[in-house]
Every structure is written in C-alpha cells, then in structure tokens.
C-alpha cells in the first residue's frame, strides 16, 4: 500500500504467544495429520506395543519427529488453555499465578516426554 508508515512496537509476552499459536498451528497440520494417518490407519492402534516403538525409535528421524510433535502440540494446547482461562480469571494476580503454573506444567510434562524420546526403549530381559 502506498504511504505505509513503520512504527516500532515493543513485543510483549502476548504478542509472542499469539505468533507462537499461529506458527505451531501451521507446523501441526502436517505433523499431526501424518502421525494420525500412520498410527491409526496404516499401522492401527492395536498393533502399537513396546516392540513397535523400539523399531520405530531405532531411526533417529522418528525421534526428532515425535519430539517436534510433542513440543508443538502440547505448547499449542497449553497456551490455548491459558487464553481461555484468561477470559474468566478477573484478578490480575491470579492470572499471573495461573500463567506460571501452566508454564511449569508444560515444562515438566515436556521434559518427561523429551527424556522418554531421548532415552529410547529398553526391552525387559526375558
């Protein structure tokens, strides 16, 4: 557009969170769809067991894939939950507590998932 002006806006947490929701949503379209088609249609949920996961994670590419799926899907979901809660929590103090609580929740669950992905599968010795 002609005559467009530039303005300097200091990015705050809300701006970054809003962008994050859009970027993760774009990333999740191929990640989640392919995951669902592979696991639920091509493989089938009844054939997924420890042995299957061991075979799958023998290839590092799948571990990276699963890590991205975990990181994007969970962060997208937790931030979405935060957005909904912010609508209904009227105290500013409570909003800060809930935001920090959700951040810790996201971090702990993501770390557990990341450790599992990095650690891989150790089949029990028979």
């Amino acid at each position: 557009m002609s005559g467009q002006r530039s303005v300097k806006i200091k990015p705050n947490y809300e701006v970054i969170a809003w962008k994050w929701m859009r970027y993760t949503a774009i990333a999740l379209i191929p990640l989640a769809w392919f995951h669902m088609i592979l696991q639920d249609v091509l493989v089938g949920v009844h054939r997924i067991d420890l042995n299957y996961v061991q075979v799958r994670w023998a290839f590092w590419g799948w571990r990276v894939y699963d890590f991205f799926l975990l990181a994007f899907a969970f962060a997208h979901g937790v931030n979405g939950l935060r957005q909904v809660l912010m609508d209904y929590i009227h105290s500013e103090k409570a909003r800060i507590w809930v935001s920090w609580g959700l951040l810790v929740f996201w971090l702990v669950i993501s770390l557990i998932g990341a450790f599992a992905i990095i650690g891989g599968v150790r089949m029990p010795s028979s």
Binding site: R5, V7, K8, I9, N12, E14, V15, M86, R95
Partner: peptide, 11 residues
C-alpha cells in the same frame, strides 16, 4: 500510533 498499538497489544 506506536503508543496506541502498544496499549492494544496488552493482555
């Protein structure tokens, strides 16, 4: 403009 946009970028 920047001041107004900064206000509207808040929570």
């Amino acid at each position: 403009t920047a001041e107004r946009l900064q206000i509207l970028a808040e929570e």
